[in-house]
Simulated scan of single mutants.
Amino acid sequence: MFLASPLAAQEWDSGYCFLAPIKDTNLSFSGRELVKEVSVQLGQEVHVGEIVMRLDGAGMPARYERSLAELQHAERAMERANMLGRVMIAEDRDQREMELAVKVASAREMELELERLNLRAPHDGIVVSIMAQEGEMLEDSSAMRIINLSQLLVEIDVPSDRFGRFDAGQEVQIRTESGAVVSATVVFADPIIDLASKSFRVNAVLENADREFVAGTSCTLID
């Protein structure tokens, strides 16, 4: 709920603020990689952990299948060793245990390498930029941008004469560009004052589940 009222010019002296996405992430791959598949579209909502892009693994899937086959062979050899019990020479048993451990580690390494080919959403949000397409070569560059608008970060520039009046958890009132007066919760108050601007920074969180408020717009802090 909010009250609509005109933006008062004198309120700018109380504190200028800016609304930004609570989470704004540029996703990228390291090294030189070929994009195999872009799994999402601009404007699509994604959830944390969802695959949004895949790289070309070349022959890696086949190597992974081979490592699994070798692991199964080592496991069967170890099972036979366990069945033989004390009949088997200790050195032979140790050799099979070592071979099994090596195959387990190799398969796990391949799993991690295959997973590296998947770019996953680090949080819920909306895809607002796709900087790479299928078949394109990436080289240490951003591939996609995802933002979360369920909450907005209110970045407030407060005059130094109000220093020490804000604490985490405190509710503050802000007025948006549309004239709406809403409450936001303080999450950080700068412990120092900027000498050049004679101001300090306060960050607050504004609930925005229905996306009523727009990131990228300005606001003012109300006394």
Rank of each mutant, 00 (worst) to 15 (best):
V154N: 04
Q72Y: 14
V52G: 03
A105N: 07
I126T: 12
S39R: 13
I156T: 03
Q44V: 13
T25L: 11
M60F: 13
I192A: 13
L119K: 12
R32I: 05
R211F: 13
R145T: 08
H123I: 07
Q170A: 01
I222W: 00
L68H: 04
P61R: 09
D24F: 04
A209R: 08
E111L: 07
F29G: 04
E33C: 13
R93S: 08
M137C: 14
G49C: 12
V158F: 00
V214E: 07
M88D: 12
L221Y: 10
V128L: 02
R63W: 14
S129Q: 08
L119T: 05
I51P: 04
G135W: 05
T217M: 07
G15I: 01
M78Y: 10
M110N: 06
S67W: 01
Q72W: 11
V172H: 04
V172G: 01
C17M: 05
A8T: 08
R162P: 03
I156D: 02
L71P: 03
S150T: 04
A105M: 11
R66V: 14
T220A: 12
P61C: 14
K23H: 09
V158E: 00
E113R: 04
G31W: 01
V46H: 04
I174W: 00
A168G: 07
A101T: 01
L27I: 06
E65K: 11
D157I: 12
P122T: 00
A58I: 06
V182F: 00
A215E: 06
D161C: 10
R80I: 12
K36M: 09
T25P: 08
Y16P: 15
V154P: 03
V38A: 03
E70V: 12
Q72A: 12
S141H: 13
Q151M: 07
Q44L: 09
D13S: 01
E113D: 08
E136L: 05
D157A: 06
T176P: 08
M88N: 04
V205Q: 14
K198M: 11
K23Q: 05
V182D: 01
F29R: 02
M98S: 15
E33G: 13
G15K: 02
V187Q: 13
M53H: 05
S67K: 03
A184K: 03
L114Y: 05
Q170Y: 00
R32T: 10
V205R: 12
E212N: 15
L27W: 06
C219S: 06
A81P: 09
R80A: 10
M110C: 02
L68W: 05
N26P: 14
